[in-house]
Design a binder for these strands. Sequence first.
RNA 1: GCGCCUGUAGCUUAAUGGAUAGAGCAUCUGACUACGGAUCAGAAGGUUGGGGGUUCAAGUCCCUCCAGGCGCGCCA
Length: 564
Amino acid sequence: MASIPALLAERIQAVSVLDPELRPATRPQFGHYQSNVALRLAALAKDGADEAGERPEWVAAGMAPRQIAEALVERVDLSDLTEPLEVAGPGFINIRVRSSVLATVVTEQLADIHAGIAQTSEPARVVVDYSAPNVAKPMHVGNLRSTIIGDCLVRVLRAVGDTVIPQNHIGDWGTQFGMLVEQILFEGIDASTLTLATSVELYQRAQQHFRSDEAFAEAARRRVVALQSGDEQTRAIWKSLIDVSKAGFNAAYARLGVLLTDDDLAGESIYNDALPKVATDLEAAGIAVIDQGALCVFIPGDDAPLIIRKSDGGYGYAATDLAAIRHRVDDLAARRLVYVVGSPQAHHFHQVFAVARMAGWLPDGVSAEHVGFGSVLGPDGKMFKTRDGKAVTLDTLLDAAEEVAAPDIAMAAVKYADLSNALHKDYVFDIDRMVATTGDTGPYLQYAHARVNQILRKAAAEGDVVDDATATITVLAEPAEQELALLLTRFSDTVAEVADGLQPHKLCGYLFEVATTLSSFYEKCPVLKAEGEVRRSRLVLCRATQRVLATGLDLLGIVAPERM
RNA sequence: GCGCCUGUAGCUUAAUGGAUAGAGCAUCUGACUACGGAUCAGAAGGUUGGGGGUUCAAGUCCCUCCAGGCGCGCCA
């Protein structure tokens, strides 16, 4: 099944040569889709702009946009799919899809095992790097955004047929572990008895200790070396710290209802052994040079170097990220790398990707994309911090949401609020607005779903069960029915757009429109009170709508309750 | 100092260079023995931060200024 605008565009382009760039009509009186191709053809038909090939031969030099539009409409035959084409304004072509076509497409969509979501013609192996909490630190709002966004992208990419490899790049390595292990030994703690909460407190004591006691600091530094060289006791304690944190992470993931499991863990530590080779390979290739004692790459057009190896011989996170790229491309065979990490890291990823390109570790045909996102702000519009200046923990936020709504609703509220505006923008964490059941919120979408589900349940109780495989939409006479059906036919293209551009808010906006259009239909077109063919057809339309809402919400990581 | 991002209605926000900038909240006006009113229909609310420029067409592209945020060689 092809999307309707794609079908139309193909036929129009056969005549227009230029891509007609069909867009949903901006106003109802302009039909369902509109094209401005005549205006662009007119620009080509202007004197002096006679570059060969672009302009179809039937467009004479100097033709006015409206003339071109009218000539185009004469030459394109879409009568099996659309009402007669109309030319309006300065030369726009307005297209109205026949309601019989809408009915057919929605019917096919309902019978489709993928709910109409077109499967990509070239499935790709995609790594999505997200969540990335730090061991022995509580998960905070930044982790929340990365986790929610990444989870959504994984679901969407899988839905279009890609093979997705989630990678949870947890912070399980680095100098802080020398300090932590040393503090555990100093206090004589049995590391296996720690919890995430007590290890967080331990971290704070260790930091204090590190700052106030030079002998301890020195021991902590030696402990880092011991860890890196594989000292058995040190490794054992390090490992129990990680296990404790992992349990905490998994509890948070379960609460959020995200897909991440232990199988997706790929922390910084796994790249440790690969770091020296990153450095030597870059140096041997002449890409990295020693500057002020550190091994640096100077990227053309960028005045800040990327530091691969510090002057003390240690490796920074740039080296880790480069090793991760090599692993993901060479071992995991990924063709697309997606990093869901806050916007402040934009420059870092720009540098890392550039260096990986220079080194040939990111070959042509493999893309690397940083999906940056803005900060979560407190009620005062500033970075969300507790009164004593600490980062707000994830549990604090979720607890606050669950104080005012049941868990399923609360999670929907938090996730939808996070996903529904453009990723790069900051947003204020406002519980009351998020959990509202009216307006552009997660709970409203859940409500719309529950409500349409109620109709289907009542009908089923009377023996009218909609069988997705055979049910057919036969009547689309009312404008409200047509509008809803038209919107449903856009589901696949919307999902494809999100898979391509990695912008979940487009899916949110689409689903909100489906919900409001459903409400309007619901008001104007009785279903259970209708009779015969109309009733049967409307039930099928309800089921198709419910399926789009349920499937779409699932792609956002939001549950769609049958009742609320 | 350099770089990146943001600025749209009272508030929260959408908009692939295309028609009259589209929604939600709040406000106001209608519609209820209602397929769940957690609703629907309608009204009002905008010189898209200011100023230039490109274009048949600019919230969108270019320049500049203002305001705010975030980065910028050895934390990750």
